[in-house]
């Protein structure tokens, strides 16, 4: 069995190649969630890759649908579909659009317009409570996405209805579309905002797999929903991409891809198992 560290490296490798081949944007935000996805899919979520709609599965919604290259990669690596299908990413006629598509096995909800998935996650978590099912619902949002007012409607709603089966993860990489989150529309103090809304809030290093695991493995206590504010680095793992707004848009060219893959291989050689 792969461990989550190796899985994260493979997610990054695939996401880089997919974005290069497709000349697509958003590699920075895909790299920033690679570790979170790796821990979720390797160690936390109850999954049925051969039966992706099994009612007992945990539900994961990627609200920041533009980072879907990382999600497609982890689903392929976890055997939801053939890895080769990732080669069709963004190609004419492919199901693999560059925002997350529910037409792909393992993807619950199409996303791409920001501020949608947390409300849907509230509905799923509410249904789970009302039907006395015991799966968990996870929603991953970006930091910039929290500008959307719809999120705050849901942030009010979830604790009021004691949705402790709902876990929200904030990919707090500090950079949004046109600049630093702190400059565009500051979220701070974010943790105490969530606490004031009656969430159980924890802050972690979003690239520390043990910290990610420890935060994800338990639901909110005292009937509260849980939010994990994951401090991350946009472009994490590739030195020339880290913390650079440019990589919200730019696709790695041949030379940049080569350099990026070399950096990954240096730390995590390709898993031959």
């Amino acid at each position: 069995m792969k461990n989550s560290i190796l899985l994260a490296a493979e997610i990054r490798r695939h996401a880089l190649i997919m974005n290069h081949n497709a000349n697509a944007s958003h590699i920075g935000g895909a790299l920033s969630i690679a570790d979170i996805l790796a821990v979720l899919y390797e160690r936390v979520l109850t999954l049925f890759p051969q039966e992706p709609t099994n009612p007992k599965r945990d539900r994961f919604l990627l609200s920041k649908g533009h980072a879907c290259s990382a999600l497609y990669a982890v689903l392929a690596l976890k055997d939801f579909f053939e890895v080769e299908l990732l080669d069709t990413y963004s190609k004419n006629g492919s199901k693999f659009t560059t925002h997350a598509s529910h037409n792909i096995p393992g993807i619950e909800l199409s996303t791409g317009s920001l501020g949608h998935a947390l409300s849907v996650g509230c509905g799923i978590a509410l249904a789970s409570k009302r039907k006395q099912n015991y799966f968990r619902t996870f929603v991953l949002v970006s930091d910039g996405e929290l500008d959307e007012g719809s999120n705050w409607e849901a942030i009010l709603f979830a604790p009021h209805h004691k949705l402790d089966n709902l876990t929200l993860i904030v990919d707090y990489n500090k950079i949004q579309s046109l600049g630093n989150v702190d400059d565009v529309l500051s979220l701070e103090p974010l943790k105490s905002k969530f606490e004031a809304f009656n969430w159980e809030a924890v802050e972690i290093d979003g690239h520390d797999h043990e910290a990610i695991y420890n935060s994800l493995i338990t639901s909110g206590r005292n009937a509260k929903p849980k939010v994990i504010i994951a401090h991350t680095i946009k472009g994490k793992g590739i030195d020339f991409m880290e913390n650079q707004l440019l990589w919200h848009y730019k696709s790695p060219n041949e030379k940049e891809l080569e350099s990026a893959i070399a950096q990954l291989n240096k730390v995590h050689p390709i898993d031959q198992s």
């Binding site: 509230c122 509905g123 249904a127 009302r130 039907k131 409607e153």
Partner: peptide, 26 residues
């Protein structure tokens, strides 16, 4: 009562919650 909810004055959230409930069979 188990199939009713007043979500508050928050229609975007209401529509999203409806989608989530419908995904679970309601």
């Amino acid at each position: 009562p188990e199939r009713y909810l007043n979500v508050g004055i928050a229609e975007q959230n209401m529509a999203g919650i409806a989608a989530g409930l419908a995904m679970e069979g309601y």
